[in-house]
Design a protein around this nucleic acid. Structure first.
Lengths: 349, 349
DNA sequence: AGGATTTGGTAAAACGTTTAATATTTGTCC
DNA sequence: GGACAAATATTAAACGTTTTACCAAATCCT
């Protein structure tokens, strides 16, 4: 593989000249410029970027630490990251923690998990990445990214402990509000809710969105209409029964899986989802498009999260101020995905 | 950020000594060894790997070119790649082509697609990756990886045009044979097939597996029992009707989506899948576990494909001979995933 | 014509490591 | 105490670039 020195020799000029020409710096005659360019082509000269990086003290690369590639949220976030990084010509170094393969459910309390992340950060820094994005599988407070890093870091789909490292997250209250408003616009005043695990940030925020819409529309909040699920299809199935007894006209399930469980239960009871009882989901998992009827849900802005996160980190490493909010959190909005599971029962005026 | 030179000065020794100690080479006294190690800790010395790479002419990194991160097969393959690469301490540089976002369905005929891939390969080589893995979204012949690359390359989930670059693919005939054998073991002699698009390698191989099992069990192959689908749920739905007229006892759908369509049709006709008619799928898409009844299917060895591909490429770049078969193709086996959609109708002996 | 300026080019240092060749210190033995 | 070997440490070159400082030739201006 030809080096710049060999190329220079072939052209009968100095390396400096070649370097200048290749980086289109001024100060070379058209003649030598052409000569060098042609010769570079002929020798199939490929610049050694690692030498360049060493000299320039820049790598135009950022480290991406993903908790687990096989969790549904992660690939889309990474897709967003690569989208923006390509545009800005940054290379990504991927680290896959394989968290859910390596650790039990309680992974996030384990010291060795922190150790692992610390090690991977160190490895990336040795490789002179200019920034780091940590991609969480679901929103929560992540304690393992120190806020004393000498390079910028950004959390995608999670919060940092101290709030010092910028985070980009889903606007869950907005998303929940949007679909709830859609429900009340379609005449649903008694909407049962199946929540996620109550310690989950997602579940808390979505509940706030629910309450917000109730309030804004002058509907009294009835705590009896909200029951606790745990994100699984089974919990959606089992909770649906008790909600149905309360004469709700619609169900808001805090994820698509539980909505699937609700469908199951209704089928059993001879009720038609989207006809007898409306149902709304959340997340836009691939499968919910295949429910019968297809589920109306809210689409998580995963791509945008990745896009925004890389935007932030690249701004930061170029010395520009982060334009995340004052609390360093950037919430990106969801898109309402209207399908067939919500019936309009509003009486016309 | 401290360099080795500063560290050396702080310790009052030469850089060479520090280097030797840090790489635990022999020839340093216990005393200085300890001193240096402690000082390194104290200064939080972080070696500059790009300098090291330049000197060593090695980067321990491999480039991964993924066609599209958001296609379901890709993340699992990448997970397999990272799994093995972590073990061997190779870093991965990720390139996401975003093929299905950027190009139409006919992307693979477009010149700019080839150009794009060529460019990305060049970029990776400039960064001195030691090997390249191309990750396809589904199996087909990939024409855009030249077989004259100066570094080893491997195709994951695809074939190279010339057969010169090693490929690791799914053993689709084996997978189809396995689930078919399961079907006949459960007494099904008349098994209808809904194929994928006939020009797909997947569809062709799976059909061979189907025929193989028929032959081995002395069942006559009836071409009337195989109808052409196009991988979509709709095609599964529409094809099911005509198969049902042929008095089949089971359906083998060449992917889970079409199996879902078959379920839909049976529901409509008042037939219970897994009871009145057995159905088998292929691919193990997440959603098929939620079908009612859960679909018996074959699980694609995506993780293993990634694992094997990185094994091959790392062997290759270390000068070991590739242990792919003589035709440079390594087919990795599938796992039968038994759930609830196949009924045993065999008469006991 | 001759000094000043512009144009086109070069030499060499630097980036942070590793390593081969060499130098220095320490220890052993008579 | 001196010779020799072994143990330990140092010097300097190298990896492939970029860039600063410098130089020579060509061009311009009066």
């Amino acid at each position: 593989m030809a080096t710049i020195k060999e190329l220079a020799k072939c052209c009968g000029v100095s390396v400096a000249t070649v370097s200048n020409i290749l980086n289109n710096k001024p100060g070379a005659s058209e003649k030598t410029r052409k000569l060098v360019l042609e010769m570079a082509e002929k020798l199939d000269y490929t610049p050694n970027v690692v030498a360049k990086n060493l000299k320039m003290q820049k790598t135009r690369s950022i480290g991406v630490i993903a908790e687990d590639m096989t969790i549904f949220s992660i690939p889309d976030i990474i897709d967003g990251i690569t989208d923006y990084c390509q545009e800005r010509d940054y290379q990504i170094l991927l680290t896959n923690l394989r968290l859910f393969k390596k650790y039990s459910d309680t992974y996030y309390n384990r010291d060795d998990y922190y150790g692992l992340v610390g090690l991977e950060i160190k490895k990336l820094m040795e490789k002179q990445v200019e920034g780091i994005i940590y991609v969480a599988a679901h929103e929560r407070i992540i304690r393992c990214i120190p806020d004393t890093l000498p390079i910028p870091a950004v959390m995608a789909y999670g919060y940092s402990k101290s709030g010092k490292v910028p985070s980009v997250v889903v606007d869950d209250v907005g998303g929940a509000a949007e679909i709830m408003q859609y429900l009340v616009d379609h005449g649903h005043k008694r909407v049962g809710v199946i929540t996620g695990k109550p310690d989950s940030l997602h579940a808390q925020a979505r509940l706030v969105g629910y309450q917000q819409v109730l309030f804004q529309n002058g509907i009294l909040y009835d705590p009896g209409l909200v029951v606790e699920g745990d994100w699984t299809r089974e919990s959606g199935y089992s909770r649906t029964g008790q909600l149905l007894e309360k004469e709700v006209t619609a169900l808001f399930c805090m994820n698509d899986l539980m909505a699937g469980g609700a469908y199951d239960r209704m089928d059993e009871l001879g009720l038609k989802p989207g006809e007898d009882i409306s149902v709304a989901g959340y997340d836009d998992r691939e499968l919910s498009g295949y429910y019968r009827p297809p589920l109306t849900t809210v689409s998580l802005p995963l791509h945008d999260i990745g896009h925004k996160a890389s935007e932030l980190v690249i701004d930061l490493l170029n010395g520009r101020e982060s334009e995340a909010g004052p609390d360093n959190v950037c919430a990106v909005g969801c898109r309402l995905l209207i399908r067939k599971s919500v019936k309009n029962i509003a009486v016309e005026a």
